[in-house]
Design a protein around this nucleic acid. Structure first.
Length: 559
RNA sequence: GCGCCAGUAGCUCAGGUGGAUAGAGCAACAGCCUUCUAAGCUGUGGGUCGGAGGUUCGAGUCCUCCCUGGCGCGCCA
């Protein structure tokens, strides 16, 4: 097994280094040399010991090598190179035997128990029900869902959460916008309020509401009080929120994302959580009245200015329910919480954390964690599509899925780091669908599956104990090493909360798979070779499938 | 003005938490289908890693300053 090999070499390095009088706390780093000619593993230990031992790196390397006994680790050659690297070359057969681990683990290969079952809450999308999900939400959905899967794969108990405002000013504006469209249907001028919503979907909601009443718009409007807070107004508000929530759910379903919890902001008011939070903050003595408003000294917690909690008009700023909401996460047992949001929300990071710190609840200072992604710009017909709720100009998540398919949308959103800006060229993604990188990866998987299909062999029946000592071709060795790196990739991506590492890894791995497939035949080869290659094909299939699963992308058997 | 993020090949971007000669796809050019899928493979060309200093055995990666772009900076959410 891969980690057995590295652990073995590492232990020997530690022993040898202590022999040389190195400080007891050494943790040698083993890494894959960029150039395969340098062997399977390399360490820079001699260079890092140069300072404490007051000797030249190459001299230390020489003395380390003289003391090493790594033949039992599968190492056949040890050499010193460059400024003092120690390179290890493994017995190819020993390397190939690592494939057995992949076959035995199957769909759990790459998974680990690092999280030890601890609970983590991942909040993402969290769109207010005032319109359809746009491309920014799409990026968040892809990112959040992949991060959730990464943490699940590394042993965390994950809860996916969607938080939404169902009662604030924006929702009032939503209801007023619908009412304005109803007036328009009644032949009056549509008087959309300041901060209202202009999109076509508002008109459709107005039409549907009128239809549920079975009358004319004019008659429906006359049937009750449509002033803010009136009975009919409330009914329209609830109707509009329900319609838009249902539409968002359809979008998410089309994208293949499921949430465990939908958390309503309004519940924080109705169950008294907001008032409790205000009281608790007041009790710490960190609040004060100024110009008729209630403030919190967030500057005590590295905010650049104090924040208003209660406005002069007596209502709370969004900051208060935000803090109350995160207290519920903590109280619900999530001692780790991750928020996936657009970078335009970055100013809330310090504020929310400061609010939580001010409560003296022993919540860690960096709770919650944030994954902020940069904006998505959509290019269409050669020009940028401005996304504006006001103007109702939209590219929705569903549009993207319809145009290029769920798998491609997910991959495009995940193939690059969240903190770089993303240009989603719709026309390109559409016309390019045949040479899309996601197909390149899926094709590699389909080809592995094809070997078993054509051979009439059940892939699950491959015996992990099959001899693989014949897998010594360069393409085979390169592919095997890559497949054995998979657990480390997953672990690193989960720790860094960076799914794009998996995407990059899968693309590179697919390249190795295609190359091997092209150069070496599996079926109808002499039995020892065919059987060994079937093990490799099975291992590649497992890794590609497991990796794609984490990204939320399907692994087709044929294409 | 202040804060956060970015700047790497013609284009779009990778470059574990400092390592050896900075990579991939697309685009361009030249090849490869009797054999498990040519949605693939092979080869060629292409770089002042935005700029300048610094840290050290070693910097695309860390620090400082500057330039450019995006996003924030409200008793809006």
């Amino acid at each position: 097994m891969n980690s057995e090999t590295t652990d073995c070499i590492r232990a020997e390095l530690v022993r040898a280094a202590r022999d040389l009088g190195a400080p007891p706390a050494i943790d040698p780093v083993l890494e894959r040399p960029r150039d395969p000619a340098h062997g399977e593993w390399a360490t820079n230990l001699a260079m890092t010991l140069a300072r404490p031992l007051q000797r030249k790196p190459r001299e230390i390397a020489q003395q380390l090598v003289e003391r090493l006994d790594v033949t039992s680790c599968g190492v056949t050659h040890v050499e010193i190179a460059g400024p003092g690297f120690i390179n290890f070359r493994l017995d190819p057969a020993h390397t190939a035997r690592g494939l057995a681990v992949i076959l035995r683990a199957g769909e759990r290969y790459g998974h680990s128990e690092e999280g030890a079952g601890r609970q983590v809450n991942i909040e993402f999308v969290s769109a207010n029900p005032t319109g359809p999900l746009h491309v920014g939400h799409g990026r968040q959905a892809a990112l959040g869902d992949a991060i959730a899967s990464l943490l699940e794969a590394t042993g965390w108990t994950v809860s996916r959460e969607f938080y939404y405002n169902d009662a604030g000013v924006q929702i009032t504006n939503l209801a007023l916008s619908v009412i304005a469209r109803m007036r328009e249907l009644a032949g009056e001028p549509a008087d959309i309020p300041e901060g209202g919503y202009h999109g076509e979907y508002i008109r459709e909601i107005a039409e549907r509401f009128v239809a549920t009443r079975g009358g004319h718009a004019r008659a429906v409007l006359a049937s009750g009080d449509v002033g803010s807070g009136g009975a009919l107004f409330e009914e329209i508000r609830r109707f509009a929120v329900a319609e838009l929530r249902a539409e968002q759910d359809r979008d998410l379903q089309a994208f293949g994302v499921r949430f465990d919890t939908y958390f309503l902001e309004s519940s924080l008011y109705t169950d008294g959580r907001v008032d409790d939070t205000v009281r608790a903050l007041g009790a710490t003595g960190r609040t004060y009245e100024h110009e008729g408003a209630l403030w919190l000294r967030t500057t005590e917690f590295s905010d650049d200015k104090d924040r208003v909690m209660r406005k002069r008009d007596g209502t709370y700023t969004y900051f208060v329910p935000d803090v109350a909401y995160h207290v519920t996460k903590w109280d619900r047992g999530f001692h780790r919480a991750i928020n996936v949001q657009g970078a335009d929300h970055h100013s809330t990071v310090t504020r929310v954390r400061a609010g939580l710190q001010a409560l003296d609840m022993d919540i860690p200072p960096r709770y919650p964690e944030y994954v902020l992604h940069q904006m998505v710009t959509v290019m269409r017909a050669g020009e940028e599509v401005k996304i504006s709720k006001r103007a109702g100009s939209y590219v929705t998540v569903r549009d993207l899925v319809d145009w290029v398919g769920r798998d491609a949308v997910r991959y495009f959103f995940l193939m690059r780091r969240g903190d770089s800006q993303l240009v989603f060229d719709v026309d390109l993604a559409r016309t390019q669908s045949e040479e899309n990188p996601v197909y390149y990866i899926q094709m590699a998987h389909a080809r592995m599956s094809g070997i078993f299909r054509v051979g009439g062999i059940d892939p699950a029946s491959i015996d992990p104990g099959t001899s693989v000592d014949t897998l010594v071709e360069p393409e085979e060795q390169a592919l095997i090493k890559r497949l054995l790196d998979f657990p480390a990739i997953i672990s690193g991506a989960a720790e860094a909360l960076e799914p794009q590492r998996v995407a990059t890894y899968l693309h590179d791995t697919a390249g190795e798979v295609h190359l091997w497939y092209h150069k070496h035949h599996v079926l109808n080869e002499p039995a020892p070779i065919m059987n060994a290659r079937l093990v490799l094909a099975r291992a590649a299939q497992i890794v590609l499938r497991n990796g794609l699963a984490i990204l939320g992308i399907t692994a087709p058997e044929r294409m």
